[in-house]
């Protein structure tokens, strides 16, 4: 149970079947008001571009920083440790924020998790008349839609266009990089004990495909299935990717010695890589770097160590926060 909790909370922003449709760019530039439809179909209407924004989702905060700079933000979460935001009051773990605290900051826009509308922040902020944009970002396409919509809400559409263009170019370069290379099977191992893997429909599954790999468990029906070790051995993934908060000196740590795991070719031949979980569990504006880093690892030895990939680890490790993850995420 704790394992499932940890896994799913770790995957906070990933997931959901890929066929979930989002209506593209609903922003209509009305004469007087800014109007955007958010990811749960609510219309968000602003009289003017947002100037006092609270984002409860780190990847969205990153986008706001890139589009409008730190001045439009009036609060941060524990996971946003960018130095530009250090002086802002922190709402802490943004999963259960105090609504009255948010209201007291008089924001003109709050970016929040949709949380299935059961008892969420969205509804309660709505109740007290504070504009909320419910943001659900689960795929690369979602990231790009989110960037454009935030651009509209912030009155920074051109900055949004250029950020989107940059992402598009980065992804294109990764595509060229892996074109014509043999497809490698990849196990994205969220947790080793019990083994828990990324299933189809997750953000990282999409990244694996972009990076010229194939998710070894892409035929399962669950997003983060718990899998049997013998099934992993039977499928013999070419590469194993382990998201890890701690910089693992040895990505094999804890695997190579264990019975079963040492039967894996990937373990025996050292094709196990540790990655920054933020970059792969949380869809965000650094999707290009994420895809490039993954390609680098999947086709290790077969690719020139490009600039992007070389810098990735450093960037990744230095990245503030862990995607709004509660401490449970570190429990593995």
């Amino acid at each position: 149970m704790a394992g499932i909790l940890a896994a799913v909370l770790a995957g906070l922003s990933a997931c959901s079947p890929p066929d979930r449709s989002h209506s593209p760019a609903d922003s209509t530039a009305a004469a007087t008001a800014i109007r955007v439809v958010d990811d749960i179909g609510r219309a968000v209407v602003l009289a003017a571009p947002a100037r006092r924004v609270i984002s409860l989702i780190p990847a969205q905060t990153e986008v706001i920083l890139r589009l409008a700079g730190p001045d439009v933000l009036v609060a941060r979460t524990r996971w946003d440790t960018d130095s530009a935001l250090a002086s802002l009051p922190s709402v802490g773990n943004a999963l259960t924020p105090s609504v009255e605290w948010l209201a007291a900051l008089r924001p003109d826009l709050v970016i929040a998790w949709p949380d299935a509308q059961s008892r969420d922040v969205v509804k309660r902020l709505d109740d007290v008349g504070i504009p909320v944009y419910a943001s659900r970002v689960e795929s690369v396409a979602d990231v790009r839609t989110m960037i454009r919509r935030l651009g509209v809400l912030l009155g920074r559409t051109s900055a949004a266009d250029s950020l989107d263009g940059a992402i598009s170019a980065e992804l294109e370069s990764v595509r060229r990089l892996v074109a014509g290379r043999p497809e490698r099977s990849v196990l994205y191992l969220l947790n080793a004990e019990p083994p828990m893997a990324a299933g189809p429909g997750t953000y990282v599954d999409e990244l694996i495909r972009m990076a010229g790999g194939r998710n070894v468990f892409d035929d399962l029906r669950q997003l983060w299935p718990q899998v049997a070790l013998e099934e992993i051995i039977a499928r013999q993934p070419d590469v194993i990717i382990r998201p890890s908060d701690r910089a693992l000196d040895d990505p094999l740590a804890g695997l190579a010695g264990r019975p079963g795991w040492r039967e894996l070719d990937a373990v025996r031949h050292g094709r196990v890589h540790a990655v920054d979980p933020d970059l792969y569990n949380r869809p965000g504006p650094r999707v290009g770097a994420a895809a490039h880093g993954l390609a680098q690892r999947i086709h290790a030895g077969g690719l020139p160590a490009g600039r992007d990939a070389a810098s990735h680890d450093a960037t990744a490790r230095g990245v503030p926060g862990r995607g709004g993850l509660p401490p449970a995420g570190s429990g593995r």
Partner: peptide
């Protein structure tokens, strides 16, 4: 899915 899971756990 994750979102429902989170909602349900919080509930």
């Amino acid at each position: 899915d994750v979102e429902s899971f989170r909602s349900a756990v919080f509930w």
